[in-house]
Amino acid sequence: MIKIIINGKQIKVQPDTTILDAARRNDIYIPTICDDPRLEPYGGCRLCLVQIKGMPRLVSACTTPVTEGMEVETTNDQIERQRRTIVELLLSDHPNDCMVCEKAGDCTLQELAYFYDLRANRFYGERRQYTKKDLNPFIQRDMEKCILCGKCVRVCEEVQGVGAIDISSRGFTAKVTPPFEKDLDCEFCGQCVSLCPTGALMGKEALGRGRQKDVRKVETICPYCGCGCNLTLHVNRDEVVSVSSRPDTVNEGWLCVKGRFGYNFIKSPDRLKTPLIKKDGVFVEASWDEAFQYVADRLIAIKEKNGPDAIAGLSSARCTNEENYLFQKFIRAGIGTNNVDHCARY
């Protein structure tokens, strides 16, 4: 452990941590819009500039590792002036349509504008204007709201390993885009959506289905596979409007396309809610007791007539490890056959 001083307070941190991490762990606020602890440091937004005693320039807290005895100041007039200017510059090139923006209430840029009380803007000028290309079914991209923090690009590359997007062009015209500025065509895991600090990337299914303040959060586990990712359902009245995941969970907040966007089945009229038993060629609704009894009777009958090897069990990847274990136990010990397999093998 090494000792550093932040804002006059002595703290102990692990070597190889950044100033930003050290501050976070000690509940010292440093604003940032491009940093995520799960991604490599980027140093692009410059909001986390801090003063280190003895250094001629302000440095970005997200990229600077702590050193023994380092004295850091996270706020002073000079630092706050830089931060204010940076947010003001961002807002000078932003639609500022918070009244109708889906992200309102959950937007880092909005928070910063509020924090710095930015009403007027000294820098209003040309704004980037882009036509929206959104033929894909999952992700709405509004590049006019993009602040080029690069989180989407980095998560796609560093975490998902896909690299479906990158920054093209230079300077003011730089933008995040799929190859050759075509429409997005990727895995649609939506990792990028989950990290976007503004309304530039939004899940399409959530659009127009309620403001952030109307949403109730319900913690659950994803039903799609045995991984057991934690989900946070965003529920407005009795409707799931979107799905997210917290970074402090087993899946670190990462989800796949199914977990993140595949929630419309909940209200699907095709969804089975009770077991069905086919009677005279037609499926008829039944109770669980009825269904279990029917299955048990038939298994016993087949086993008695044709022996246990006439029965085989095929299990599902949507079951947990424990469920799969119980299933093979049931087939082997209960039925008495080794005819047991799993869909993930096919």
């Binding site: 692009g44 820098f123 690069g150 003011f172």
Partner: peptide, 21 residues
């Protein structure tokens, strides 16, 4: 410099544009 800014950091990307304007 406005045209040659890489666009990674905000002060240079938007700042040089506004200075030019």
């Amino acid at each position: 410099t406005k045209s040659e800014s890489c666009g990674k950091c905000i002060p240079c990307r938007v700042g040089t544009k506004r200075l030019l304007e």
